[in-house]
């Protein structure tokens, strides 16, 4: 357990204005829990993959407003912290089959990308070190491949959207770019299609039927020993 009270390593953090003494070797999320906060929202995988724990902070002596994932970023002394567990954004619904991999796909659903100032605030806010402005610009000129590749590591935490002065929601654009890329540029994944064909041909029917016949205990036993059997 990391929550060992090591006096020499304690730091002070300020969560929404309230100060707490916490061990310095904790992430923001664990430090907040140490200080008594309970996460009902704004916490998900705890592994840096889900994007639920977007957090903004400043450190003492600096004007910079920084962004991080609470489950990844280690606390620092005199860190001023606020959670941004949700960014309000309209998510457009579209049928990917009706779209084409061009600029119009973005302009029709997210025309606000035309308001991009190239200020790069989004890139500076991104905890995943993605070139956010560059992919927004690529989308604006219809370069779907570039937008999809640059945004590949996006986890939709929303920090870019909160900071954008042009009121763009970059992660929605990134998601559309990747969908268009996989549908129209990269094309279908052949190995998935092959596996699907095998399923349809009944290759796994016997195995599935066997699993369905097992009782709860036997299923549990199978699950727990799955790695040994592989």
């Amino acid at each position: 357990m990391i929550m060992e009270n090591n006096e020499s390593n304690m730091v002070t953090i300020h969560v929404m204005g309230k100060s707490h003494e916490v061990p310095g070797d904790l992430t923001i999320m664990k430090a907040m829990e140490y200080a008594g906060h309970q996460f009902r929202r704004g916490s998900g995988c705890r592994g840096g993959y889900c994007g639920a724990c977007a957090t903004i902070y400043r450190t003492k002596g600096s004007y910079k407003l920084l962004g991080a994932l609470a489950c990844q970023k280690m606390v620092e002394d005199d860190m001023y912290i606020a959670q941004i567990p949700f960014s309000p954004a309209e998510k457009k619904s579209y049928d990917i089959n009706d779209l084409r991999a061009d600029a119009n796909a973005f302009m029709v659903h997210y025309p606000e990308i035309s308001r991009c100032l190239s200020c790069n605030t989004c890139t500076k806010a991104c905890p995943q070190d993605i070139m956010v402005m560059d992919y927004v610009q690529a989308a604006l000129r219809g370069d779907v491949s570039e937008a999809a590749k640059l945004s590949f590591d996006c986890i939709s935490c929303g920090l870019c959207a909160i900071r954008c002065p042009a009121e763009i929601v970059p992660y929605n654009i990134a998601q559309l770019a990747r969908r268009l890329y996989s549908k129209y540029v990269d094309g279908p994944a052949e190995h998935v299609l092959e596996k699907l064909k095998e399923v349809e041909e009944g290759k796994f029917d016997a195995e599935i039927a066997e699993l369905q016949s097992l009782d709860r205990e036997a299923l549990k036993e199978r699950y727990e020993t799955r790695e040994k059997r592989l």
Binding site: A103, N104, M107, V108, P111, S114, L140
Partner: peptide, 19 residues
């Protein structure tokens, strides 16, 4: 506001006009 434009208009208009 861009909200006033229909999908058809957004499809027709070039970026240079909207920007």
């Amino acid at each position: 506001s861009l909200d006033e434009l229909t999908s058809e208009e957004l499809m027709e208009l070039p970026q240079i006009a909207i920007i």
